[in-house]
Design a protein around this nucleic acid. Structure first.
Lengths: 247, 247
DNA sequence: CGCTATTTTGACCCCTTTCAAGTGACGTGG
DNA sequence: CCACGTCACTTGAAAGGGGTCAAAATAGCG
């Protein structure tokens, strides 16, 4: 449960963020430079399981540099629901994400860096670069759409469909954050956590993954999932136009 | 399935919007004036069941003036999930809400008015009024939080809890849009539609409502629901701090 | 006063959960 | 090097919440 701060000023902590934003709209060299200038703070380490605490009054935002974080809620009777994930290159905001009952915590060991400057810079249009703002806007829209998809998954898909649907989303999401081998998914989550994302019991999560494995759609194990057949997986996820080029 | 446009320039179509924004932060007379100036367009009527089509390329936004709209998706096998509702005084945006598979449609007869000017005005900071921007930001945050709550409802609450939870949310939401009698909820939705919001079958939705009625928590009928005991309803919804002052 | 849309009801089935026990894979300490 | 505890993953059996189907009862409405 360590939560210390380290003074790091390595090469670039923003590589994933840059790549992700670029995937939403081409950025210029000046945009990249601007982004890098925004993240000069101190890295902070959050041990797996520990909360990521943000200061709402400062409108604090943090960029995930390493590891996976989750935003969600825990009911007092032990039930837990993850609303959304934060992968490296993505940002965590205090407002809205965190509230009375909503909180953010580290799923794996996580390293973050302060991104308040960047966040407020974007929302207050401190940069004049239209491409950057455009990319940013698309990113925010994609986030919104992802949440909507999460609602549909939980509301109308069964366990099998949900799982396929989520894996496909994560696959396309990782492609935005950095180069990936098609079909190979870095997935450092226990089945327990996957269950909390998909609104299932851990036991049923396990059985569903086995079913996907048996059907030769997904090979999941030890922090890594291989989507062996993207098209039939998409079919299983009940995505008609859904998983198209845009996703 | 009429979808005609009418030329109306009545008193104020923005009353609910004004009230709602004010509930997030006090507005000045100039802010009210600004808002009114933004909505001088032609009213548009959407018959119940018909889609509300927005132009994403124009970044079109529309203010709901009358009636209830829904944002969601329909799977090709007939399953349908509503992601979120749009009550009078709230805005519908093209980006994010509408996509390949996501769409917006009228649940009741709906009247909307173009709000693109206001929307882009807010996101591009064309107004310099800090209070207005502050209220707007809070509104957007509340929207985000609402979606997160929808995820938690669908992921971890059972039918009974879900229903109680939703009714409480709508109750507090209507209070922001205009004066309401405590506990009385204008609810122009069929059980069919409620089921599509809560991820239930219509049959089970019906049984759940009966259960709430039997327990003297909710009296639901004909476009109107009376929440007879807010505290025990909140308890049923599994809201500890959740339904507190902020919601 | 019929016609259609919505609400109810009953019976049956199955997807998921729950409970409980068992198997591995590691990492630590003796 | 092996016993031991922990954590994640499996498996089995039983119960339950919610879905599905189909038909009846109401409620609206022109």
């Amino acid at each position: 449960m360590k939560n210390q701060s380290e003074t790091h000023h390595e090469t670039r902590h923003t590589a994933s963020l840059e790549r992700m934003l670029s995937s939403f709209g081409p950025l210029g060299a000046d945009d990249i430079a601007y982004i890098r200038d925004c993240f000069t703070g101190v890295l902070q380490t959050h041990a797996a399981g520990s909360p990521v605490i943000l200061a709402p009054e400062r409108n604090e935002a943090r960029l995930v540099f390493k590891g996976w974080a989750a935003r969600g809620a825990m009911l007092e009777d032990g039930r837990r629901q993850i609303v959304g994930l934060n992968l490296p290159g993505e940002m965590i905001v205090a407002s809205g994400a965190v509230d009375t009952d909503m909180l953010v915590w580290a799923l794996t060991d996580v390293v973050t860096i302060d991104g308040t400057a960047f966040w407020t810079g974007m929302s207050e249009l401190r940069t004049q670069s239209p491409p950057l703002l455009e990319a940013w806007r698309h990113y925010r829209t994609a986030e919104r759409l992802r949440m909507a998809r999460q609602v549909i998954r939980l509301g109308r898909l069964n366990a099998y469909e949900r799982t396929a649907h989520l894996l496909l989303e994560l696959h396309e999401r990782q492609a935005r954050l950095g180069p990936v081998v098609a079909g190979v998914l870095h997935l450092p989550l226990t089945q327990d956590i996957l269950a909390d994302i998909l609104g299932l019991s851990a036991v049923h999560m396990n059985r569903t993954l086995q079913q996907l494995r048996r059907n030769a759609l997904v090979d999941y194990r030890a922090g890594r999932a291989v989507l062996q057949n993207l098209t039939s997986l998409a079919q299983a996820a009940n995505l008609s136009a859904d998983c198209g080029p845009s996703l």
